[in-house]
């Protein structure tokens, strides 16, 4: 057993799933020009918590996710995942990730793609097969196990990618617009499934989306961001109830619509002073 594992056990469940403190990410582009993709971001995600990132294109949602995934390093500030550095968390395989693009390996079948992380980490063949079958069932692609990605629609590929991200039952899921390519029906079904999966596995989720209803339906908290420089402008607590009783009825509930308009207001920055005041009233941390 790795020493880091012991450290986590010692830390127990008190360690937050994700802790971003004062993270700034500056990209230097051509001719030395600088893009401030993220400006002193503070964000903390509790174990089992579902947090959505929402904001206009280019506000740094993907960048923030990449910092957490240790695919990029912050220019200043720190990112901690389950009490360890983002790098250590990646090495320990503490998270599963689904990108904006499915990114399946074209020479592997659907089942083969889902099994990839298991195979790379030395899970036995029978265990792998069983797990892949389970996940295929979950994303409704059992009949497509032996197909190749190119024989699937974009939405189906994305579902395979989601199944792949769940393969090792991670305690943290990082998802970058995973449902962007799905039709509305599949999308709502996948949302329901995701809520169920999170309830079952107790995984924390950082979820990037462009859809306000989606963010509200799924999340415990919705983080609203603004671009140039990428900042968190508001954090709206949603908490529409325990995962178990979130179902399609919820999509028509009054609280749902209230939260949707709260997010919309924060997103559009109206009423001007109101957003800050409202969030302060809700006791929400704002930067």
């Amino acid at each position: 057993m790795r020493s880091s594992d012991v450290a986590v056990m010692a830390a127990g469940s008190t360690a937050t799933a994700v802790d971003v403190v004062g993270a700034t990410k500056i990209f230097t582009v051509a001719k030395g020009a600088q893009v401030i993709a993220l400006d002193t971001i503070d964000l903390s995600v509790a174990p089992g918590e579902f947090v959505s990132l929402i904001g206009p294109s280019g506000c740094g949602k993907s960048t923030l996710l990449r910092l957490i995934a240790d695919l990029d390093q912050p220019t200043t500030g720190s990112v901690t995942v389950f009490g360890k550095s983002a790098r250590q968390a990646r090495v320990d395989q503490d998270y599963g990730i689904a990108f904006q693009q499915a990114g399946l390996l074209p020479w592997r079948t659907v089942a083969g793609n889902i099994e990839l992380p298991l195979e790379l980490h030395g899970t036995g063949k029978t265990a792998r097969k069983a797990r892949a079958a389970e996940l295929l069932e979950l994303v409704g692609l059992t009949d497509f196990a032996d197909r190749y990605p190119e024989q699937l629609s974009g939405g189906m590929q994305q579902r395979v990618a989601i199944a792949r991200s769940l393969a090792e039952s991670p305690k943290l899921l990082l998802m970058d617009e995973p449902f962007g390519a799905l039709d509305e029906m599949t999308r709502e079904r996948m949302q329901n499934e995701l809520v169920r999966i999170c309830a079952e596995t107790g995984a924390a989720v950082v979820f990037v989306t462009h859809s306000i209803p989606e963010a509200v339906f799924l999340s415990d908290r919705v983080v609203v961001m603004s671009p140039r420089p990428g900042r968190i402008v508001d954090v709206i607590p949603v908490a529409l109830g325990a995962a178990e009783d979130r179902d399609d009825d919820l999509r028509e509930a009054v609280g749902f619509f209230a939260a949707v308009s709260a997010v919309r207001e924060a997103l559009h920055g109206t009423p001007a002073g109101g957003a800050a005041g409202a969030s302060a009233a809700r006791g929400v941390e704002t930067r």
Binding site: L71, D92, Y95, L116, L120
Partner: peptide
């Protein structure tokens, strides 16, 4: 995207080569 996927799996050069 595929290289980054392998990176998230924290596998080394050798496994990335093979897979």
């Amino acid at each position: 995207a595929h290289m980054e996927l392998m990176r998230t799996y924290a596998v080394g050069w050798w496994k990335t080569l093979l897979r």
